[in-house]
Structure formats: structure tokens, C-alpha cells
Simulated scan of single mutants.
Amino acid sequence: MNDNLISGVLHSKGFGSNVQSVTENDNCVVLRIQSPTGEGYMTLYMVMKGVYVMFDEFHLESCESEFKNMENVFCIDHCRQGRIEHENLLGSKFYMESGDLKLGRRINHSGRIHMPNGYYYGMTIGFEVGEAEKSIKSEFPGIDIEIEAIVDKFSASDKTNSSAEEYFIRRDSLLENDEHIDHILAEMYNIPNEIRMELFKVKVMELLLRLKMLDKSLYKDDRLYIPASQAEKIKEVHKLIVESPGKNYTVENLSQMFGIPESTLRKNFREIYGSPIYKYIKKVKVNKAAELLKNDSNLKISDVAENVGYDNPSKFSAAFKDVMGLTPFEFRNL
């Protein structure tokens, strides 16, 4: 990729000063974003003029993105693995998990990104609408695709409404109503290098045709918006759980400690971390126990159980096997 195109890509996407170019070739640039909690990589392919495919791989908890979007950009975001928190400029947060799809202009993108589980792997297919329209008509003259019509279908002109600018589809709804879209996206992660650029073009067009035919009435945009203040309280609950694996907390305890109604605590914790709170607590305890079993051979299994809050060795063994698939004794002797 020549210097003018690289600088053009970086400038037009407005990635910001905390993003550096790592390497590039004729049609690809690899970018790195860093934060105090880790780093992430974005591999961006220029498929056609005005059309790009970008793969995100983040191993961090949070970062401040300086991304500045242009109003004529339309994005299709797909979560492959992990979870990602999006915060809009209106002070609300929502979450994407594996298989979820988001389409829109990102007008209210705030730049604050959080990965509740410490990692995220996904893909963005981006269109600079005017240029993309020209490229598609030039490369695929026999296919009737109007990018503007698809943009209008999945976004609205009301820029004060955080839910109007983007459309969200959960994976279970996608599989129920149009599994072809899920298959197209899955295939894009596994294209051989030798035919990558050619197949990217084909897959992008196939996806656009499916979106053109998609019946929006079959889908309910059921994402849960969480006020930022509530989300921060849930993160405080999470921090307490992770830092105190030896303590036994109930939802009632945590509700009183943090001033969150029990039903709200359960619902929002599941939305942010992708797991019921009791199941998450058990996983934290078992992971800590596994660490102790491997790193300190002098500790008896009963001592390990006590260290992570289990007074009953039988209950500890059952919980450990439920999470790890092995008993503590089997795990230690691997």
C-alpha cells in the first residue's frame, strides 16, 4: 500500500494519535492501539475504493478511541468472540456478544470502549457511501445494489436518538430468520491468503444482497441500554467478586452493598458479563482454585477449597468439575 493511500485511510477513518501503523502492503494495513490495560490490533483491507474490511483483535479491558467518523460512513459490525461495550454520547451503554450484528452510521460514537472479559475479536465492514456506490457499480455492473437504500433501511435521520442511528440483531434471532448472513460472516474469517481480496469482494456483495432482502419486521432490536452510572456500579461489583474469591457473596448482599435492586443487579450483570452472577462467581472461585492447585503443591485440596470459600470439600469438588470438567485431584495430576 503506498504512503498516500495509507495516510488517506488513517486520515479518513480518523483513528487518532493512539493508533500506530505496524505494517502494510499493497492492500492491507495493520494498526495497533494501546492503553494502560493492554493492546489491540486492527487489520484493515481495502477491498474496493470506499469499501474496507477490518478485523479487530483486542486483549485489553478498556481504551479511549479518538475515532472520528464521517457522516457518509456506514458500518456493519460483527462480534466473533468475547464481549464489547459501546457507550454513546447520550450516556447509555449496550453490549455485543458472540454472533451479534450491529449496522449503522456511528453518529453518537463516544470513543470509550470496554471489553468486560478482557478480550474481543470481531469484524467491521465499512462503506464510504458515495465512493462505495461508484466502486460497486463499476465492478459489479449487473447487480442491483443501492448502498444508500441499505443505509436508509438500517439507520434513521434522527441523530438525537441513540437507538435510531443503528440497528442491532442478536445471533439467535439471525439464525432463526436468516442463517445465511451468519454463514457469510463466519466464512470471511477463514479465507485463504491467496484468494482473500477476490473473495472479500464476493462476500461483501453477497452480504449486501442478503441485507437488501432482509425483512426487518422479523427482527426485534432488543438490546438493553444501561445508563452509564448503573454500568459503573456493576463493574464495581465485578471487581469485588474477582478480587475476593475467598468471600461468599449473595445477590442480596451485593444489592445492599452497592445500592442496586436485586433484579437490576441480576439483569445488568448478565448483560455486561454474559453470565448469571452466581455462575460467574463460581467460575472466579474455580479459576483461582486451579491456579493454587498448579502453583502450590504443598496445599491440600481441602485447603484450596477453604481459600476460595468452600467449607465442604464435596461441594468444592462438584463445582470444580462443573467448570473445569475434571475433579481437583484429576486437574492437579494432569
Rank of each mutant, 00 (worst) to 15 (best):
G16F: 02
N27T: 00
G82Y: 01
V47A: 13
S21V: 06
E39W: 11
T37S: 09
D77I: 09
E87M: 15
D26F: 15
V53E: 03
M48C: 13
I76R: 08
M54L: 08
S92M: 04
D77N: 09
F58Q: 01
F58N: 00
K68Q: 11
K49A: 02
S17Q: 05
Q81D: 01
E24D: 12
I76C: 13
E85M: 12
R80V: 02
N18T: 04
C75S: 13
F94S: 14
V53D: 05
K93G: 09
D26H: 15
C79M: 03
F74K: 07
S17G: 05
G99T: 10
D26G: 15
S92Y: 12
K68Y: 03
E71D: 14
G82T: 00
N72C: 05
I76Y: 11
G38T: 01
D100E: 07
F55Q: 07
Y41M: 11
T37W: 01
N25W: 12
V53M: 06
G91M: 01
G16W: 02
S98E: 07
T37E: 01
D77Y: 13
N25V: 01
K68C: 08
C63E: 04
Y45N: 12
P36V: 03
K49V: 00
L44P: 12
I84E: 00
T23N: 14
N88T: 05
H78W: 09
V51N: 12
N27S: 11
K102P: 14
E71T: 12
F67A: 13
L90A: 12
E66F: 08
C63P: 05
M46R: 05
E85D: 05
V73Q: 15
F58I: 00
I33R: 15
E66G: 07
V30A: 10
G82S: 02
E39M: 13
G40Q: 03
G82N: 00
S35I: 04
Q81E: 03
V47N: 09
G50E: 02
K102G: 14
S35Y: 02
S92Q: 09
E66R: 05
T43V: 13
R32S: 09
E24G: 15
S62Y: 06
Q34G: 11
V29G: 10
N18W: 01
F55M: 06
E64D: 10
M96W: 12
S21W: 08
E64N: 11
T43M: 12
Q20Y: 13
G40H: 03
D100I: 04
D56M: 06
M54T: 00
P36A: 07
D100R: 08
Y45E: 04
R83D: 01
F74Q: 05
D56V: 00
T37F: 02
F55L: 07
S17C: 04
E64G: 13
M54H: 08
D100T: 06
T43Q: 10
D100C: 08
L44C: 13
E71W: 14
